[in-house]
């Protein structure tokens, strides 16, 4: 029961239509499925395989390659604490310890109210702002135990609803490509001169 719902199947077909080969849409559809269910189920994988004309094993392979696709349910907020060197030097371990104490779960676990999943993360590319963490991949810089507690309080109280959507949300406004801006789909086997090249004008 976690195949794509009807509305999302329509969307999936539209997404597939943007690529010359259906299977190129595998990753966008995995995102779509994660947005629908919060995580990715085996049924969803089988459904996506059907839609893009791949085998389930291939879609599973793609899905498990990427850290951001979760194959088990996660909390509404995914809290990632960076453990790479700069952050570690500036107190990432203490932060993680504090987070574990505060949330009452070990890294990798989800709180019983289903609100938070705590995870270790690799470099978040903001070493000058260490220590770093993310909530649903939104950066939180120069974390201290104090502003960690405040952040968690705010999230619990729903004060950040507008700022940090639930895990899996791709976008609150979906991209629309007007027909006159769409590049169109050319078969890779019949390469055409791109519209912006002078040759195309002739």
């Amino acid at each position: 029961m976690s195949r794509l719902n009807e509305a999302n199947v329509m969307l999936a077909k539209e997404i597939i239509g943007r690529y010359p080969k259906a299977r190129s849409a595998t990753i966008p559809l995995l995102h779509l499925s994660q947005q629908q269910n919060g995580y990715i189920t085996d049924d969803a994988i089988a459904h996506i395989a059907e839609l893009v004309g791949a085998t389930s094993a291939e879609v599973l392979g793609t899905c498990t390659f990427y850290e951001m696709f979760k194959m088990v349910p996660v909390g509404k907020y995914l809290v990632n604490i960076c453990g790479t060197m700069s952050c570690q030097l500036l107190g990432a371990d203490e932060l993680m310890h504090h987070a574990e104490q505060t949330l009452g779960v070990k890294a990798g676990g989800t709180t019983s109210d289903g609100l938070f999943t705590l995870e270790h993360a690799e470099c978040q590319a903001a070493c000058t702002e260490a220590p770093n963490m993310q909530v649903n991949y939104r950066h939180c810089h120069r974390m201290t135990t104090t502003n960690f507690d405040k952040l968690i309080d705010d999230l619990r109280a729903g004060r950040l609803e507008g700022e940090i959507p639930v895990h899996g949300t791709l976008a609150r406004v979906r991209q629309q490509i007007p027909a006159d801006k769409a590049a169109g789909v050319a078969s890779p086997d019949a390469p055409v001169v791109p519209a912006w090249m002078p040759e195309a004008a002739q």
Partner: peptide, 19 residues
């Protein structure tokens, strides 16, 4: 018959079928 595939990444990479 692409029924076997690499699963996961890095040190965890292994061959699997779909369940």
């Amino acid at each position: 018959d692409a029924l076997i595939h690499f699963n996961s990444r890095g040190n965890n990479t292994h061959i699997t079928t779909f369940p």
